[in-house]
Nucleic acid binder design. Sequence first.
DNA 1: TCATGTTGATATAACGTTATACCTCTTGTC
DNA 2: GACAAGAGGTATAACGTTATATCAACATGA
Lengths: 334, 334
Amino acid sequence: MAGKPKLETVAREAGVSIATASQVMRGAGRISEKTRSKVLKAAQKLHYVPDNRAASMRSGQNREIGFVINKISNPFNAEVISGVSDLLEAEGYLVSVLDARDDPERQGRHIDAFIRNGRGGLLWVPAEQTPQEIFELLAAHRIPTVTFLRRPDASSFDHVGIRNAEATAQATTYLADLGHRHIAYLGGEVLTAVRRERIAGYQSVMAARGLGAPVIWDSNDIKQAGMQAMMALRAAHPKTTAVVCNGDIVALGACHGIRRMGLQPGREISVIGFDDIPDAAVATPPLTTMAVSPYQLGRRLARVLLERLSEPEGPASISEVSAELVLRETTGPV
Amino acid sequence: MAGKPKLETVAREAGVSIATASQVMRGAGRISEKTRSKVLKAAQKLHYVPDNRAASMRSGQNREIGFVINKISNPFNAEVISGVSDLLEAEGYLVSVLDARDDPERQGRHIDAFIRNGRGGLLWVPAEQTPQEIFELLAAHRIPTVTFLRRPDASSFDHVGIRNAEATAQATTYLADLGHRHIAYLGGEVLTAVRRERIAGYQSVMAARGLGAPVIWDSNDIKQAGMQAMMALRAAHPKTTAVVCNGDIVALGACHGIRRMGLQPGREISVIGFDDIPDAAVATPPLTTMAVSPYQLGRRLARVLLERLSEPEGPASISEVSAELVLRETTGPV
DNA sequence: TCATGTTGATATAACGTTATACCTCTTGTC
DNA sequence: GACAAGAGGTATAACGTTATATCAACATGA
């Protein structure tokens, strides 16, 4: 009871050497069944818990994975985390989440602490404006790293993401096919890499189909802001009959705004979201959106990391997932 | 470039001893300004990152905090995490989040890993059915621990929570004052400690006011389920004119269900939620709810942990926060 | 001159594991 | 009976830090 039990305590209790006790705890080496059970019993009796700091320091191995995420409050991300940890925990890893809140400085502290603690692998949604230095640091320390959603140009890490341009192009095409000519892009404030891709997809279709001039309308990606932005957008561009949104949350806000103006989403103005968050299906009216299963995306992300861990020197892989247009009730003919 | 730089590398580069380099890095001991800058320059040049495993093992200190949470996807929890990490990061700690998803086994693995890594402090929303053994383990390892929201009877740790019974009593009283007599309690499936308290508060007012027989209606706490449960509840108890809900999400679902039935929340049926999640204010109609600021709650939680860290042997504190009735548009006279 | 501090730097033993090499038995083979 | 092979176990040196004790050099005061 005096101080935490260590391997030495267990070994003495069982009447064996420290080395033997260590091998039993790890299930390594050649140990007879008799001593095995002796040691196990001793460990149990003393409530022994091995110290992973010492172990990972000595062995150079660590089955702890860090997930540095841009925004933990995003329900999409929550699902991704579930997918990631389901797969990794099944392989004996443990996932801890660090919320960078899109702040490069906080992100820097988190990644720094990650390296300090010699964790085994890193999943990472890089903040915009991430300094080059962090990539070099990770590379220099040989940290198995997979970036997620955002892939900075300078990165040489594995990556899992979404085909953003393809998705918004598909959404815009669908609206054009319904007869809409004045289609706006709504949501996002900063020109993040992801948003740039999505806007590019939208613009390419607007140009290719010879539709009205593209309208990009900024909005913070929360519901309230989306509502106000929709009303302002409509006031500035009264001809607008459809909006492609930067995300579901802003899209739901837009629907709210449309109703506030006495109109009906899907009749006077069509709305397409992005992400298919749980709320999208049960909103009134249910939201048409570009869906990509966050849970499956999380599993894919975990799988890529596992491959990297088993093959540290292989070439970097980039895998991108297509989003799928889910038709609900916020879209209709013009 | 051959292998990670360690303190020895830095010391050699700077032409000092390892002990001196260590003191400079920690800002401890008495070091002249000249050698100080020499060492700092060397460390910078080599991109030295200290190994926290070795440091915390030797010093017995660790400024890493783990937050084992019941459900990361709950937006309420996301806000709590922000409050917690804002305060703790300001004090030089680092918070990592582990999602137990209300699964005692997963929770066990997380806490086990937490102890293995000798982290500095634990914030914890214990899963229902948490085995007694885990409490003993944490106590035996002298882990500074603060439980959050759920306080098992056997616990002797610090605790921060919400006055649940008081809150639902207040909500029920408000509805009774509006003239409602048939008030139901909607939401939750398992009889968790929190839900039990909330139901008790509701029941006590129903009895004290001599209102209709209490109706407890189970529902999974997601929107879709709340919608269906509301419709089923109304079918089974047509006289019901008001519902006190287990949480905002189920309350929003209930509002949806009410509209599906061709009625209007706040007119034919009043609804009161719990938590005041961001969506509550911007829903149609905006949701009346029992609010407790999750961000402030997170800060309080962090503060309690800091006190425990600075005073390891002090008596356990239990601090409970009152919820506040926020009137919006889903409640009205009968 | 000698005790007495003070400043700045250092040598060294931990911290709790695991990897490596090594040892002692048994058993089997010719 | 000599030798090889293998099974089961152990001693010991790392891993990269920090705490402690110690030391040299120089200043201070009587």
